[in-house]
Amino acid sequence: MPPIARHTKSKIRYHSRDGVVEIVLPAEEVVTSRFKKISTVRLTPALISKLKAACADHLVYLQGQLAVMKEDTEDEVKARRPLASKVKSLEDQLGGSETWLGLFGDRALPAVGKCDKMRGCIYVAQGPGWTHPAHPAVVLIVGEEESEPKGDNPVADDGEVAAGQARSQQVDLELVADVGGKAAVEPVLIRKDQGRERRAKPLREKPESRRD
């Protein structure tokens, strides 16, 4: 049986100045697949852009925590160093492109209730019951609820998705370049049903019946 891909309801979760933030993603933005008991999630340029924006907001939260820490004594300076190191690391991550380009594509999902690191401060968790990692951390939560595909057919199989990705490779590369840049503008991923262009079949006129 070929791999099956499905739309999956997901969230992005992280800490900000206003508390814990959960961004609910539309099901059509996240696609998961399963083959030989291995589940994966496809990270598109649009999804990576949202993760990057969440990291930028999370950085502001960490910078605020660092700003209120005193550094008058040697002990205070020493206590401040771990958070200062994390802030510097996240700043470098946001300013570069390596992390974001490395996220693009299909990523293995952890077991249900687990949370695994993908790259930099980006983590992925599946289902409920997992523990939020230490800061800095932005978590993509996959599969708390799954949307049922319409009809008897799944969203797409890997062969069809691969064909669609090949046709739109140039668009993807341009969008990934935007994601990797310093200006975290959210790109719009141009796609039709995961890369498959669907065109309505022309209506054929029925031949007029011959009259005797």
Score class of each variant (00 low, 15 high):
residue 1 M to G: 15
residue 1 M to S: 15
residue 2 P to M: 04
residue 2 P to R: 09
residue 3 P to V: 12
residue 4 I to M: 08
residue 6 R to Y: 00
residue 7 H to S: 08
residue 9 K to Q: 06
residue 10 S to F: 00
residue 15 H to M: 11
residue 21 V to K: 12
residue 23 I to L: 15
residue 24 V to Q: 10
residue 26 P to K: 06
residue 27 A to F: 02
residue 31 V to D: 00
residue 33 S to L: 01
residue 36 K to M: 05
residue 36 K to E: 02
residue 39 S to L: 01
residue 49 S to V: 00
residue 49 S to Y: 01
residue 51 L to G: 07
residue 51 L to W: 14
residue 51 L to K: 12
residue 51 L to Y: 14
residue 51 L to S: 08
residue 55 C to M: 14
residue 56 A to N: 14
residue 59 L to Q: 02
residue 61 Y to A: 10
residue 65 Q to Y: 03
residue 65 Q to H: 07
residue 66 L to M: 00
residue 66 L to K: 02
residue 70 K to C: 01
residue 71 E to K: 14
residue 74 E to T: 11
residue 75 D to L: 15
residue 79 A to N: 01
residue 81 R to L: 12
residue 81 R to T: 13
residue 82 P to Y: 11
residue 85 S to P: 01
residue 86 K to V: 01
residue 92 D to P: 03
residue 94 L to M: 07
residue 96 G to E: 06
residue 97 S to E: 13
residue 99 T to S: 12
residue 99 T to K: 10
residue 100 W to L: 15
residue 101 L to P: 01
residue 102 G to K: 10
residue 104 F to P: 02
residue 107 R to Y: 00
residue 110 P to K: 03
residue 113 G to D: 15
residue 114 K to L: 03
residue 122 I to M: 06
residue 123 Y to L: 05
residue 123 Y to K: 01
residue 127 G to D: 12
residue 127 G to Y: 11
residue 130 W to E: 10
residue 131 T to L: 14
residue 131 T to F: 06
residue 136 P to E: 05
residue 138 V to N: 11
residue 139 V to K: 03
residue 140 L to F: 09
residue 144 E to R: 07
residue 146 E to S: 02
residue 146 E to K: 02
residue 147 S to Y: 07
residue 149 P to Y: 00
residue 149 P to H: 07
residue 150 K to N: 02
residue 151 G to S: 01
residue 153 N to L: 13
residue 154 P to S: 07
residue 154 P to I: 05
residue 155 V to L: 11
residue 155 V to W: 00
residue 158 D to P: 04
residue 162 A to T: 11
residue 162 A to S: 11
residue 165 Q to V: 15
residue 165 Q to K: 15
residue 168 S to R: 03
residue 169 Q to I: 11
residue 171 V to Y: 06
residue 171 V to G: 00
residue 173 L to M: 10
residue 177 A to M: 10
residue 186 E to N: 04
residue 186 E to I: 09
residue 187 P to S: 07
residue 190 I to C: 04
residue 190 I to N: 13
residue 192 K to L: 13
residue 192 K to G: 14
residue 198 R to D: 01
residue 202 P to F: 11
residue 206 K to D: 08
residue 207 P to A: 13
residue 211 R to N: 03
